[in-house]
Design a protein around this nucleic acid. Structure first.
Lengths: 359, 359
DNA sequence: GTCTTGTGAGTAACCAGTTTCTAACATCGC
DNA sequence: GCGATGTTAGAAACTGGTTACTCACAAGAC
């Protein structure tokens, strides 16, 4: 007898009328149920059993067409819509898939979000979205919670430690991993060959004569950042300076002075946003790009074409990842195999932000 | 590029360890009844009734602490987690809110998405997202469907005709409208004063001596576009050319030649993306901005600071809209009033893409 | 004209919780 | 000592569907 009785003390008005006591979930058998129509009401109206109504609503062929028509008419008449909650319970399916991302503002994840949203829509499913704000602990909780409300999960670029995910993997299943690979995880992964992407960039830059290179590092927890950094470190003949940066425009913008200071002739951005930011920052410092400094990005976000100068970057199939993630997830949810892991190789896009190293 | 499933799809090879059956996730020791623990199993294990377990799980104070501890221990032991589906049915609540947007790729809606996502997370609710792809008919269906799976709805910049939404409003309720106003709709709305925003822009441009202005029009169905266009048409002393355009970078980019052709000295973009696109397009045509042509945007998306030159635009409180939308929705869902409609007045941000009209 | 077979529809048992009602028991007042 | 009162905890009804099982009835086989 407590519930939320305590909070009504300051309100006291605005309740012009209490039209219809909605439904008393403890139940009495009123004479006129009111409220949204239920399958029982339809059954009664059509003079059939609930089972028959259910069969009709689900298009079972074992119902006399005449009867079916009567049921449909009754349903129509009563504005009947099957209760989603009840179907979920009875069927044990939610008709929903979930996506957990570190940062919704990042165009990279928007690609996955869109791909997933469209695929889900086409499959007549709902899409649940949760944002972890880059916090690994939060992420795990969110993922578990999202999974409990859905039939399957897409984890985009999870920040959580591999061991943690491995331990949780049977409570998370079925799920697919995007933008990350975790060995011995029982889930398919779709990832980017970051080393290859960096390789493309390095080859391009060294081909232009650059040796002193600055790397604008991404967020600490990002597996992609770790791989890109490692690949850069492993590149022979590079004089590398690592500048802590981040993943957003502002971070790149703020890093411009440090770039100038370190004397690099080329800047490799963790992603296109920091690269765009640094582009503007350099412009403000009157550093010519690519005359004095070359700049590269990563991801090929839509905006990258529209910076000045247009950004040299590597492109990754963002929407394709979303679509593929769906496909894998559908397969998994049907008890099929999630298929082989794949790793997409980024493609170099040379635009105008890179040029020969100044001599 | 590696083919993912092309060749190996029919491998009948040794598959000794493929656990194809959905193994009971909880059964580590002892032959327990399979499947996830239910309230009945917990009740049995603790030697109490289901009602008591329910009370304990919901923190009812009318349970003997000793008994409660026993129940909690049993629940812990069995890895019990209450079924979301069953609670939904019994409580008649879903614990979910839904968002319907025309276009997830648009930074404008991402603001709302983020604000909503964060507020929902804080309130311990799930967030359902649906994208209508700018199709009014689709949108209505999506909204209805989303609403059936949630306790409340946020409709962002809906494309559907006002009458249609009005007719559906009781099936959609509780819901709040964002980026659109519809008279006599029984739902609170949070919108942008487009006319005021255009007013700011026009004042700024005419102050700089511009008279011949081109407007890069947004999507046909957009209410925001209609209002902005109307405000421009109503502005006195303007020689206005309307160029069909769109809402994305590419649309703006493609419009650059038409801008040059029409001889305007200033371009008013429907939003920041088309403005950025046209900026690049003009640059490619060797038109100096703002020397020969001034360009303005709308919305102040994060990119806008990082175009070259940085874009003069009007800013609107995107995340604030998301947060406010939540607040209204929570109120509505608690049976309170949704509050007054509000209309935010955009703020002019003068950056470097506008300058004196050439004489 | 029976026996078998097939078909359509109803009965009732689920799904996994929540909540009302009720009964047993302890406590208190007179 | 006995009735009145107050706690707990259980029984059972309820949320609104789905579906395995069953049964009545009709058609076809012999």
């Amino acid at each position: 007898m407590r519930a939320s009785a305590g909070d009504g003390d300051q309100d006291g008005s605005a309740r012009e009328e209490t039209p219809v006591a909605p439904v008393r979930p403890g139940g009495r058998r009123g004479p006129r149920p009111a409220g949204p129509a239920t399958i029982s009401r339809v059954a009664e109206a059509a003079g059939v059993s609930r089972a028959t109504v259910s069969r009709v609503m689900n298009g079972s062929p074992t119902v006399n067409p005449e009867l079916a028509a009567r049921v449909r008419a009754a349903a129509e008449e009563l504005d009947y819509e099957p209760s989603v909650a009840a179907r979920r319970l009875a069927l044990g399916r939610t008709g929903t898939v979930a996506l957990v991302v570190p940062d919704l503002a990042n165009p990279l994840f928007q690609g996955v979000l869109r791909g997933l949203s469209q695929a889900a829509g086409q499959a007549g499913r709902q899409l649940l979205v949760a944002e972890s704000d880059e916090d690994p602990e939060e992420e795990v909780i969110l993922a578990l919670e999202a999974r409990r409300n859905s039939d399957g999960l897409v984890l985009a670029s999870p920040r959580a430690p591999g061991g943690r995910l491995r331990a949780l993997s049977d409570r998370l299943a079925p799920f697919v991993l995007v933008y990350r690979e975790i060995p011995d995880l029982g889930a398919p992964s779709l990832s980017i060959d970051n080393a290859a992407g960096i390789g493309e960039i390095v080859a391009h830059l060294t081909g232009l004569g650059h040796r002193r290179v600055a790397y604008l590092a991404g967020p600490a927890g990002s597996a992609g950042n770790a791989e890109r950094l490692a690949a850069l470190r492993a590149a022979p003949g590079l004089d590398l300076t690592v500048l802590p940066c981040g993943s957003m425009f502002d971070h790149g913008h703020a890093a411009a002075p440090a770039v100038v200071e370190c004397g690099a002739s080329a800047v490799v951005g963790f992603n296109d946003m920091v690269a765009s930011g640094v582009l503007t920052g350099l412009h403000e410092l009157d550093v010519r790009v690519p005359g004095e400094v070359s700049v590269t990005g990563f991801d090929d976000i839509p905006f990258a074409r529209y910076t000045t100068p247009p950004l040299t970057t590597v492109s990754i199939p963002k929407s394709e990842l979303g679509r593929q993630a769906c496909e894998r997830l559908w397969a998994l949810m049907n008890g099929e195999s999630g298929g082989y892991d794949v790793r997409y190789r980024p493609r170099l896009l040379v635009r105008d932000s890179t040029g020969p190293a100044p001599s």
